[in-house]
Amino acid sequence: MAHPLLTIRGLRVGVGRGVPVEIVRGVDLDVDGGEKVGIVGESGSGKTLSMLAVLGLLPTPALRVLGGSVRLGGVELLDLDEPHLRRVRGARIAMIYQDPMSSLNPLLRVRTQIVETLVAHGVDRRRARERTREVLSQVGLRDAARVEGAFPHELSGGMLQRVMIAMALSTQPEVLIADEPTTALDVTVQEQILSLVGELQAQNRMAVVWVTHDLGVVARLVDRVAVMYAGRVVEHASTPDLFARPQHPYTAALLASLPRPGTAHRATLRQIPGSPPDPARLGSGCPYLPRCPQGDQECRVAEPDLLDRGPGRASACWKPRDRWQG
C-alpha cells in the first residue's frame, strides 16, 4: 500500500522555557492525497497548535515542538531549516485561518500580495499576474478585476476569506490546512465557502485538513475525522461511522450535547460535567476519566493509546463500545 501523503506521529508541543508544559501530547494523523480530513474538539484542545507545529509556525521560544515526526511525501518537516520550510509552505502545504487579515497585508493591494507570493516561489512575474486573475475568478469572485485592485479594507468578510483561499491555492499546494476559516462568517457565506473548497479540492486532487469545533461542518465537508481532547487525538473514524457509532465516550457526549434532527423541542440536552483538564496537572490515568460516565478503576492506571476498533477506526478508550454501561 502507498504511504499517506502527510504522516503525523507522536507530535508533541510544549509551552514555557525550562521544563515545558506539554499541551499537544502525541498527536497521530495520516492524510492521503486528495482526502478531506476533519479535526474537531473544543477550544483549548490543541488543534491550532498542532497545525502550526506541522508548518513550523509555532511562536518560538514560548512554544516549541518537543518531539514526534511530521512527514510530507517522505520528507521529515521537523528537521528542515527555515529556508527549506518556507519553500514547503505555500508550494506544498498552505494554511488558511479564521481571520483573513492574519495572512493579508492591509497596506497592499490584493493583486500585489498574490503576485509577490508567486514570485517568491519562482514563478515569473508575467505568469504570476495571469495566475492571480485565474485564482481570483476560481474562488468565485465575480468581479475579479475590481477585487485585484482593492485594498483589504475595501472588501467584505466573505470576500476577504475568498481572497485568502485564492492566495493559498495560487501555488497549487498538495495539502490545504484550514483552521476554522468559516467560524466568523454568516451561514450562507459559510455554505458558499464550503462548497467552493469541495469543488476546488475535487478538481485539483488536493488534500484538505479542516479544523473546526462545528460537527455540522464535519458532517458536510470531510471524509474522515480525528477528535481531539486534552492535546491528543482520542478517536479516528470515517465521517458516517463517527456519527452513527462513536467509539469514544467523549465523542458520544459531544454528539448528544447538540440539538440534532430528531431531538425533541426543548428537550434536555446532554451536558458534559466538569471541564477539560489543566495540561499542567495531568495524572497518569485517562484525562477524560473525571468527566466520563464509563470510567472505572481500570482507567485510573494508565492513559490509553489509540486502540484499534475495526477497519479505519481507533479510539483512545480502554472500553470497547459494547462494554459501555447505559
Partner: peptide, 18 residues
C-alpha cells in the same frame, strides 16, 4: 436559503437536505 445553509450534524440528513 438560511435553513438549508446550516450544516446539520448528521451526514445523511445533511446530504438529503442539500
Amino acid at each position: 436559503a438560511l435553513a438549508a445553509a446550516v450544516p446539520v450534524p448528521d451526514p445523511g440528513v445533511d446530504a438529503e437536505r442539500r
